[in-house]
Every structure is written in structure tokens, then in C-alpha cells.
């Protein structure tokens, strides 16, 4: 399969890229790792006149841990993130980064590209909800920040305006006695996930949950969160029963599409299982246990 022709540009600075995108308008697209865009172009699902290669823009791939905050450059690849000290410190980051597609895709795909596609089946955007991340955006009108909750507005749709690019993702480092997990279910590594669940917890000294943030992926046009579910976990010991109760609250907010990966009811069942697993793993991690997490397969 062959993409339709397009022009190629490789600006050498972020400013130049933004100017070019702005000048060329909506028929120009930025490409970073290209792991979502290239297959789309090969399927000729639409027209692009110009590709702006932002993959090599300097200074956008760094992963930093500051005092209270982590900052991941938009061009950091999934593979780099999975192997980073940040992932060592926050294992759910590795769950997410290391569970995306396969090795080869993780070598190329970037966190910024992933969230910018707004694809309902991707992992980063929903996962980052659990860490209450903020997206740094640069565009013709300068810099702005958008909470991840507000970033993806619909399927394949984000709040990015013409000429705007994601430059970094930032999130506060979880306080002590925190733990999180992100678990997806898919039939094979390079296949789309059926659905995924992310949970981030903080426990108090008595082991009682003091803060929680849960998210579901691939079961609606945008990531699904539920303040009620988060609230339901707070004050509990995050037992199986607690997780089941909270799970029902958030799953009620999901609207899973029926597709080749299953019916809506089936997906709800999978969500229940994943919610239990992710919640248990998050609790164990919050209490200091080292638990490997990964996606499950057929």
C-alpha cells in the first residue's frame, strides 16, 4: 500500500515548525514517530499535502524529574520512557509505555504523537489522567497548558489548534504511599487493545485510601473518568469488594462500542476484571511491593 504524494519539510526549530504548520494550514500535518500517521496515510484515509517532520526538533525528548514534578518531552519514545528512571520510580509509567504495541513501534512512537492523535484506543492519554497530567502546548499564539482531562475532546479530536504542537507532558510526582497500575487487554501486541484500566492510589499510614484516580480506555470516544468512583475508593482499604463497588461506578460511565473485539457487555465484563487487577496492583505498589504489570493477551 502506498500513500498519496505529499511534500516533505524538516524545519530545524520548533518556531519554524509552528510557522510552517500555520502557513500551510490543515492540509499539512506534523509527523514525529509516525506510528499512527504512516499506517493511516498508507490506507489513504484522507489527503495530506505537506508533512512537517518534527521528529528531530532539539530539546523535546528529555525526561526530567524535578522536585515535585515529572516532565516528559513530547518526542520521548515509548521505549525510552519505559526504560527511564521515571518508569523505575513510577511503575505504572512502565506499564503504559512498555505495553504499547510492540518493540518496533515503541522504538519510534512518541508520547506527544500518541496523545495528539486523540485515538480512542491509545494508552497515553487515558493513563495520564491517573497522574493528573498537564499538556504543554506551543503554537502561533505562544505557549499554553491544558489539563489532560480537557485535552482530548472527542474521538480523534483534540483541543490543538492549527499550528499548535504538544511540547511536553507534566505531572506531579505522587506523594509517598502512592501506587498505580495500568493494564490493558488485547489479543496480540500489535493489535488494538479491547480496553484498558488505569488506577492511581494514595494510602495513609493506616493503609486507608486517601486519594484515587481511575480511568478507562477504549470504551468511549474519549478516556472515561468518574469522580464518583474515585470518591468511592477514598476512605476504604481498597479491598476486592471496594474495587468492585468503585468499578461499577466508573463502568457505568463507559459506552463501549460493539466491534470485532466484542460486544458492549463483553467489554464491561473485561473492564470489571481489569479494574480489579489494576486496583489490587496499585494498592500493592502503594504499600511498597514490587509488582510487574503488563497487558494481558488471549
Amino acid at each position: 500500500m502506498y500513500p498519496a504524494p505529499f511534500r516533505y519539510h524538516r524545519p530545524d526549530s520548533l518556531d519554524a515548525a509552528i510557522k510552517l504548520l500555520e502557513r500551510l494550514g490543515d492540509m499539512a500535518k506534523p509527523i514525529a514517530g509516525g506510528q499512527t500517521l504512516v499506517p493511516m496515510l498508507k490506507l489513504r484515509m484522507g489527503d495530506v499535502n505537506d508533512l512537517i517532520d518534527i521528529g528531530r526538533l532539539p530539546g523535546l525528548a528529555e525526561i526530567q524529574i524535578n522536585d515535585n514534578e515529572a516532565r516528559i518531552g513530547a518526542l520521548a519514545t515509548h521505549a525510552t520512557i519505559a526504560a527511564s528512571p521515571l518508569a523505575e520510580r513510577i511503575p505504572s509509567v512502565r506499564d503504559c509505555a512498555g505495553g504499547i504495541a510492540d518493540l518496533q513501534v515503541r522504538s519510534r512512537g512518541t508520547i506527544g504523537g500518541s496523545i495528539s492523535t486523540g485515538d480512542p484506543s491509545t494508552d497515553w492519554a487515558p493513563f495520564l489522567h491517573t497522574l493528573r497530567a498537564v499538556v504543554e502546548i506551543q503554537g502561533p499564539a505562544g505557549q499554553r497548558e491544558v489539563a489532560i482531562d480537557d485535552f482530548v475532546s472527542d474521538a480523534y479530536t483534540t483541543v490543538l489548534k492549527t499550528g499548535e504542537l504538544v511540547t511536553a507532558i507534566r505531572f506531579p510526582l505522587p506523594p509517598p504511599r502512592s501506587g498505580g497500575a495500568y493494564i490493558g487487554y488485547k489479543r496480540a501486541a500489535p493489535a488494538y487493545p479491547t480496553c484498558a484500566v488505569g488506577i492511581q492510589l494514595t494510602l495513609d499510614e493506616a493503609g486507608v485510601c486517601s486519594a484515587a484516580r481511575c480511568v478507562l480506555s477504549a470504551v468511549a470516544s474519549t478516556p472515561v473518568t468518574s469522580d464518583a468512583a474515585d470518591a468511592a475508593l477514598v476512605g476504604t482499604g481498597v479491598t476486592e469488594e471496594d474495587l468492585k463497588a468503585a468499578g461499577e461506578l466508573i463502568i457505568a460511565a463507559a459506552d463501549p462500542p460493539e466491534d470485532v473485539r466484542g460486544s458492549a457487555d463483553y467489554k464491561r465484563s473485561v473492564l470489571r476484571g481489569l479494574f480489579l487487577q489494576a486496583g489490587t496492583k496499585a494498592r500493592q505498589r502503594a504499600t511498597g511491593e514490587t509488582i510487574e504489570g503488563s497487558h494481558s493477551y488471549v
Binding site: Q104, S107, R108
Partner: peptide, 20 residues
Amino acid sequence: TSYCGACTIHMNGAPVKSCT
């Protein structure tokens, strides 16, 4: 669709799918 990996090569030492 970037599934099969028959096109895998190394770019700067990292495995990539050269069809993507």
C-alpha cells in the same frame, strides 16, 4: 498495518518497522 514485522530493521541500533 504495522502488525507483522517482516520489515524489521535497525535504525541507529533500535528495531523499527521499515514499512512504517
